[in-house]
Simulated assay, not measured.
Amino acid sequence: MTGQSERKGIFFDVDDTLYDHLAPFRDALRAIVQPGESFPYEKAYHRMRYYSDRLSEELGGAGTAAYGDAVEDMRTRRFQLALAEFGIQLTREEAEAVQRAYLGRQYEITMFDGARELLQTLKDAGHLVGLITNGPADHQMNKITAMMLGDLIPQERIFVSGAVGWDKPDARIFRHVNERTGTMPEHCYYIGDSWRNDVVGALAAGWHVIWFNHRGVEPESEHKPHHVATSYEELGRMLNGLLGS
């Protein structure tokens, strides 16, 4: 009989893994900045996420008091820094307006085609399914609620860095998940889009890593994810083979 520690755990990132995180970014820029349809929205989005991660790390992560005190400033600065690379100089007021528009649109979430169905299939197969995501607890839980995931993933398998105290790529957040769920690293799979946060972090914790590279970006280091998927159709076939479900 398989022991609890041998049970396979499949954990997913949230932003740009379960739903299209580019959409609210693009909509916010169109509404406030109006850069035109030729603007490279996807490239700018990646730079915004880079600065978001970098500034968050400088503050010590979403679980720290410094982050809570400075999060609004960080959120506006990331837009200023990212868009400056594309020749758009935002004033403080303009950056705040973009952030407000971006935040409002993040709760109008449409999951990627096949995402909900895959979560349901994994749950029905008896696997331990959960989420690991960076960000303030309330903010990330609002997104999870907007996707109506409460019937698929119980609260005790949702791990938000702002509540846990460690941000990805810190391996401690993955070890914390193992401790709380009674799983072992070698029996856990992590699916995420971010090279730095998801691939690097989960590898450091000894997990199996599936890089959800649906945007076709290049690796950022010499790390080697165990598998790469570009769609939920491909991911479903891959997990079916890996898990024997």
Rank of each mutant, 00 (worst) to 15 (best):
G60N: 10
Y41E: 07
A23G: 04
E58F: 13
S56K: 08
P24Y: 00
H46Y: 14
G36F: 14
A23S: 11
F39L: 12
Y19L: 10
F39R: 14
A44V: 02
R26H: 08
L29A: 14
A44T: 09
E58Y: 11
A23W: 09
R54G: 13
R26G: 03
G61R: 04
L29W: 15
H21I: 05
D27C: 09
Y50S: 05
H46T: 07
E37S: 13
A44D: 08
L55G: 07
L55C: 01
Y45D: 08
H46R: 08
Y51C: 10
I32A: 10
S38C: 11
V33K: 02
Q34N: 15
Y19E: 09
E37T: 06
Y45G: 04
D27T: 12
D27K: 15
R47H: 09
L59Y: 15
K43P: 01
H21Q: 05
Y50Q: 12
H21E: 04
P35I: 04
S38T: 15
Y41G: 05
K43V: 02
L22F: 01
Y19Q: 06
P24G: 06
L29T: 10
H46S: 08
L59A: 11
Q34I: 08
V33E: 13
P35F: 13
Y50F: 12
K43W: 05
P24L: 03
I32S: 06
F25H: 00
L22N: 03
R49E: 07
A44M: 06
Y51A: 02
K43M: 00
F25R: 03
Y50C: 04
D53I: 11
M48R: 04
Q34W: 10
R26W: 06
G61Q: 09
L29N: 10
Y51G: 08
S56R: 10
A31M: 12
Y41Q: 11
A31P: 02
K43N: 11
P40K: 06
Y45S: 08
Y41C: 13
G36C: 12
A23Q: 12
F39Q: 14
A44L: 09
M48L: 13
F25Q: 06
F25E: 01
E42Y: 03
L29Y: 15
P35E: 01
F25S: 03
P24W: 04
R26L: 14
A31Q: 13
L59S: 05
A31N: 07
G36L: 12
M48T: 10
H21V: 01
K43E: 15
A28P: 12
M48P: 03
E37I: 11
F39D: 14
L55T: 07
F25P: 15
D27W: 13
E57K: 14
